[in-house]
Write a protein that binds this DNA or RNA. Sequence first.
DNA 1: GCAAAAGTGTTACCGGTACACCCATGC
DNA 2: GCATGGGTGTACCGGTAACACTTTTGC
Lengths: 245, 245
Amino acid sequence: MLSHKILPNISIDCVIFGFDSEKLNVLLVERELLDEKGNVIIKDYTLTGYHILEDEDLNNSAYNILKNLTGLDNIYLEQFYTFGSIDRIDEGKDRLWQQHLNLGFSERIISVGYYSLINNDKVAVSSKDRKIQWFPIDSIPLLDMAFDHKQIFYKALDALQNKMKLEPIGFELLPDKFTLTQLQKLFESLSGLPIEKRNFRKKIAKLPYIVPLKEKQKGVSHKPAQLFLFSREVYEKTRKEKSFF
Amino acid sequence: MLSHKILPNISIDCVIFGFDSEKLNVLLVERELLDEKGNVIIKDYTLTGYHILEDEDLNNSAYNILKNLTGLDNIYLEQFYTFGSIDRIDEGKDRLWQQHLNLGFSERIISVGYYSLINNDKVAVSSKDRKIQWFPIDSIPLLDMAFDHKQIFYKALDALQNKMKLEPIGFELLPDKFTLTQLQKLFESLSGLPIEKRNFRKKIAKLPYIVPLKEKQKGVSHKPAQLFLFSREVYEKTRKEKSFF
DNA sequence: GCAAAAGTGTTACCGGTACACCCATGC
DNA sequence: GCATGGGTGTACCGGTAACACTTTTGC
């Protein structure tokens, strides 16, 4: 049985990435504050976060936040950075928001950032009482976000892009069975760069851990594409360390 | 003026890497506890760490720990992971140590890990009242370390190795002017893999940010080597993003 | 003149890149 | 039969890997 006592100075923020076969998205929660007359004082978006319990593993805690939000088990989750500036909280709206909630968390908080990768199809976002929505990552620059969450988002994106250079990651964003075009679009979304189709396919064909299935796409009004599977087992067995430069 | 009140649940641990022209080392602090009769009860090694003040930036705090220890400014410092398991503290010797110090920190602590890269020559380790010593990284597996510091060390090494695959890092470990042999030994130490000399030099020759100087090594009893400089400016100007796979 | 490390050239292979056309399906 | 995305081959180039000998200096 876990204690319900929380650690006062630590929180977790999760950057949840999703992919809808076209573009990369991030899941955000609306934050809205009304005054007595019902006028909107604050309306912006936050990442999903929570405090941690005093006898709860940090990684478990992040995992639980996600499970709670999405209802999914076995979510891909990666810790990427810890944010500890003294000016993480904006003296305007963030302070106002905290006074409103009256949670007593207004003192210094260090936040541990995690990013997670979720296949959009699998998330029937169970919004509960909060307004939750996917945003294309292109739309983030113009979006108004709470606290230092925009900065956290960018750092997560950067970490994800770097991680991709080191390991084949991101298959969690696709359906279990995917086409090469979906895979290509995913990589293009993640990197922000276009990829040449033929060369892309030749490269993929050499990777033993991207396994062609006998199955084909169905119900599309064009030549149906072959489906593929990512095999983590094969990857782990055949992975090679790249050298420097 | 900074407050001297510390945040109760957060600490910083620094993994300080050094290079002595032959091998990679890490700086550790001896931890020793004697009983009333002077018998050694605990003797092992710790990373350098400290708690942070309630109005102190996380990154600044790490920076100050290093400045304090080494006397150096402008140290290369990178945050790599935050450790928050509930079993970070060993119930045997770590608990004993904490009782001895009687610091009241025995509750749950989350620790933010930083690694730093220092040229061994530049560190006249000012040991003050603590025993501080460089250890070759090969010797770590057999070393007895406090808390989860061995695990933190391995994670730092892993992070450093990954970082090197993405950017030319590690020049901070060398003298400002270095020979290609020193550079090669550094890369070999960091990766743990041997490198073929001629191919290595051809590769380096193509990198615009490794700048040959007109100067040569002096006072060696063999053909003196040419000296080189790492130019971060040139690197930043000419850096190219690698693609995936 | 000898020990010790510096420095260099060639070849073979592989992977990356650039590029344009035919194919299977639904409607 | 046409629109839509699926799927492929070839030529060139640059990078990587494997390999052994000559050069410069201090002593």
